[in-house]
Structures are given as C-alpha cells and as structure tokens.
Design a protein around this nucleic acid. Sequence first.
DNA 1: AAGTAGTCCTGAGTGC
DNA 2: TGCACTCAGGACTACT
Length: 283
Amino acid sequence: MPELPEVETVRRGLAPAMEGDVIARAEVNRPDLRWPFPANMADRLTGKRVLRLRRRSKYILADLDSGETALIHLGMSGRMLVSGDPLGQFVHDHPAAQKHDHVVLHMENGARITFNDPRRFGAMDLFATDQAEAHPLLATIGPEPFGNSFDEPYLVAALTGRKTPMKTVLLDQKTIAGLGNIYVCEALFRSQIHPTRPACRVSKDRISRLVPIIRTVLSDAIEAGGSSLRDFRQADGELGYFQHSFDVYGREGAPCRTPGCTSTIRRIVQSGRSTFYCPSCQR
DNA sequence: AAGTAGTCCTGAGTGC
DNA sequence: TGCACTCAGGACTACT
C-alpha cells in the first residue's frame, strides 16, 4: 500500500535518525522477506555510516560510506518505527519487540529503526552505489513524477499507440514511477479520464492536464504525510501508511464530490485490482 | 510485443 | 465463539 507519498514520508522520518550516523548493529531476524536477504547483510551494514537517504520510486536507498547502497522496499504492509532518538524528535522509549519485526538497525546515536512487515512483500538488498541504476529493480522504472523528464511530450509518447486501459498504464512503473492503486484512481478522477479508456484514445489536452494533476495528487498526499510525521514524533514513531482523504478510492456507493454531480462512486476490477471512479465525471 | 492472470503473505472483515 | 472464506495490493513470473 505504501505508494510514493508514503515512502517519501517514511524517508523524511528516517533521515534525522540515520543520515550522518553509523549503524552500530544490524539485527536480522529472518533470512528473507520477498526474496532472500543479500549475503552477510548484517555484517555489511554494521559499522557503516549512512551518507544519505534517497528515494527512487517506492524504494528507499541508503548510501553507505562502504561504497554500498542499501535498498529498502516496504511492499504492501511494511512499516518503519523510529524509537529512542537522542535528538528529541522521537521522544518515546524503545518499545518491546513485536511480531514481524524482521530487521532492526541500532544507530550509534541511540536511535533504533525497526522494519516490521506482516505480509513480507517487502524487500532489502545491498549493492555497489555506482551500480544502483543498473539494479534489476531500478533499471526499468520510468521517470520520477517530480523530475524534469516527466512532462507532456514524454507522457504523450508513452501513451501513443497503447490500447491498454489508462488505469493499467499509469499503474505500470515503466510509464511513471511511484503511482499505486490509490493515487492512480485519484489522478484519473481529477483529470476526468475514465479508467478503462484505452491510453491511445485520451486526447492530448487531457494528457497535458494529467501531468500537473499527478504532481498535485502526490504532493497533496506528501503534505498530509508531513503533518502525520509531526504527530508521529509526539506519539509512537511509526512510519508507514497514513490517513488521508480520497475523492474516489474506497468510496464505492458514496456520492461523487464534484459540485452538481449526483452520481455515486463505482468500483470495478481491472487486472485483478479495484478501480474506483465516477461514471459521470470520468469519460 | 503487448496484455492478462497467477503468485507470494498475513490480518482484518464478513457470513453462517 | 469459531470456522471458512474473501479481500487488500506491489511487483515479479508465466502464460496467451
């Protein structure tokens, strides 16, 4: 469930506890999540300084002073807990270990980072920093929505000739990085594009509107995540999925919020996933 | 090549 | 109360 905004919120929550500090000890409680952890992961993390935390799509990347980069993917149910931060940004004590605490990073500064993931769709990997762009998980990912290479000409080219439904195309990480089921539904609603419409049959005008709409949908959510971050700092330190209000996602049968529209939100299934949309507003 | 279906996993929710 | 069942979904793999 964590999509780009949630992952960015997690990255921002981890940064003050990790950037510039040394991993004093890495506790690895199982051999794998979705895939086996890389060989000797605990040893390769221990004693390394985190130079910076980056994000690419839905992946968090921690560049280490060993020349390696640690990749963290939250999958569907992954959460991060920050506790015991001596800088006072996370004021609570270390909590008792929970079920599904798979990896715990003990920082030299006293902070503790706990990666908890009940469904184990998450992942971790380690590789040479200068090989990051060639990593199989990162190599085929499309442009970042906030990057310069995501613009109208790019999106027009990416949609041209594609008969695939718009919903499916935007969910494809090769088209654009970081969108998941929720924000695709929201972006299509705001741009009034019907989710089943073949990509090649969306007008250039609508496509050009879609570019800023995707950015706004995501930045609104990041802003909401930022406010929940401030709450986390006072509360339990848990970083992951946050409450956010949606126009269509999860609102099957509820009234459309477009002023003057009397329709109710519908749910259909596309390639095995729920799509929510307004049958009147989206064409 | 492009598109779809199946797969992994656990917990929450629902119906009987 | 408990059991069986369905659903959630990111992203890979294996088909058509």
